[in-house]
Nucleic acid binder design. Structure first.
Lengths: 153, 153
DNA sequence: ATTTCATGTAACACATAAAGTTACATGAAA
DNA sequence: TTTCATGTAACTTTATGTGTTACATGAAAT
């Protein structure tokens, strides 16, 4: 099953935006991910509608965070992306007539619901500020090893 | 994300085989799922290699369970299918240089590992006999409602 | 005003993987 | 030797994330 990396990519982009503090263009953000600017605009569209980010056209324009890092959870971002499916496994058919399939759905469904709840729960508990803090920790760690430093990534 | 329903389909098929007690052809099994016989053979190939089922050619041939229902777990079936990915979400890249992406991977990865462990754990705990018992319960329940009965599904 | 820069969006092409289909070889029983 | 069933390759179909091109819209700089 091919995996959906939009959540991962979007978190990456949001942290870069926070780190910058000034508007970043789709082109700059695309460079962070090694992808195309249109992919950025397309993905960010949902976040803009949800009020997580703002976009400005023209000179000095680009993307900025609309809320503080500690008020945005991974769950917020996931929902803003349209709540893509968390699990790669699914039922062969919902509401089957066949009793065998009903039993299969019941057994698998229980596991699916639990796993989805676990993920949703975690996503709602982790905030972007937590990721930023982890980034800072890694940054300081690296700076201790090398003598040089460059907060631009 | 398109979901993988092979585990669901295979469990369905295995329970029908157990219910029958005699070899079932790919065509019969395909009819249970409303699909093509070749899809059945292709999917069951992994189970045969793992020793969960046997297949016989020619007259009176078909597919039979090679082990008792209470010795086969959902995990066994999942592994026999080649351990398809459980989660639809993934990292944008493994082992990234970018510290931001490392922080993202760390946060998401923790959630991913937990969810996968939960599913794997459940799969290893649930046996086909559990599903068969649930099927029987549903069957009896339906028989109480309707007066008629037909154990062929 | 005009140019430049940036987003907004449509309309494609591309990649991957599950699922479905056709065709035919292999082998076992009638 | 005919019939039935699996074994398997090769192809098509479908769905979806991803990438690309093209162009309209609008805001700031000149």
């Amino acid at each position: 099953m091919k995996q959906d990396s939009r959540l991962s990519a979007t978190l990456h982009v949001l942290l870069h935006m926070a780190d910058r503090g000034a508007p970043m263009t789709s082109e700059e953000l695309a460079a962070c991910l090694g992808t195309n600017p249109v992919v950025i605009r397309r993905t960010m569209a949902g976040l803009r509608e949800t009020g997580l980010v703002r976009s400005e056209k023209g000179h000095g324009g680009g993307w900025t965070l609309a809320r503080a890092l500690d008020t945005i959870t991974l769950g917020d971002v996931h929902r803003a992306l349209g709540e893509p499916a968390l699990l790669a496994l699914g039922h062969r058919s919902e509401n089957p007539q066949c009793l065998v399939e009903q039993a299969v759905n019941a057994a698998l469904g229980e596991a699916f619901v639990e796993a989805e709840a676990l993920l949703a729960n975690r996503f709602d508990r982790v905030r972007l500020s937590d990721l930023a803090a982890d980034f800072s920790r890694r940054f300081d760690e690296r700076r201790q090893i090398h003598a040089k430093h460059d907060h631009t990534l």
